[in-house]
Simulated scan of single mutants.
Amino acid sequence: MQRYGNRSGKSGVVAYEIGDNFVAARFNSGTTYWYSKESVGAKHVAALKRLAKRGEGLGTYISQHPDVRDGYERKDPPD
């Protein structure tokens, strides 16, 4: 995973991983949520990729879009 830019300094997202068909976001709780084209759709995955790379708005986007927030493919508990 790559460290999230967190330009605002207020994000709960600390790291992310981008694949062809998914974005994974690790939150400061240590939990990682996986969002795929199958689970949330290509439009949302494209937006998540863009925001992750920009380092701004990823957590907000996830929390403000219920179909993304509740549509994760899998959730990995903290190590």
Rank of each mutant, 00 (worst) to 15 (best):
P66E: 13
T31C: 12
I62S: 02
Y35I: 03
R7I: 11
G41A: 13
K53S: 07
D70M: 04
H65C: 06
Y72P: 14
S36H: 08
A52H: 05
S63I: 08
V13S: 00
K53N: 07
L48P: 13
F27L: 14
F22Y: 14
F22A: 03
A46Y: 06
D67Y: 11
R3N: 02
D79S: 14
R50Q: 10
K43M: 07
G71R: 09
W34N: 06
G57S: 03
K49F: 10
D76C: 14
Y16W: 15
K37Y: 14
V14W: 00
N6K: 02
L58T: 00
G9D: 15
I18W: 00
D20N: 12
G5L: 11
F22N: 08
K10A: 09
G41K: 14
R7G: 04
L58Y: 00
D79P: 15
G57N: 01
F22Q: 13
G5C: 11
N6I: 02
G12T: 05
D79H: 15
I62W: 04
T31M: 12
A24G: 05
G30F: 01
A52S: 13
G5N: 14
H44R: 05
A52L: 07
L51Y: 09
A46R: 12
R3F: 04
T60G: 02
S29I: 06
G5T: 08
H44P: 04
V40N: 01
G71I: 03
N28K: 14
D76M: 03
T31V: 15
K10M: 13
A42S: 15
E17H: 02
Y16K: 15
D70E: 11
N6S: 02
Q2I: 14
A47W: 04
S8I: 08
V40M: 02
Y16T: 13
K53M: 13
A42C: 12
G5H: 09
E38L: 10
A24N: 08
E73G: 00
G30Q: 10
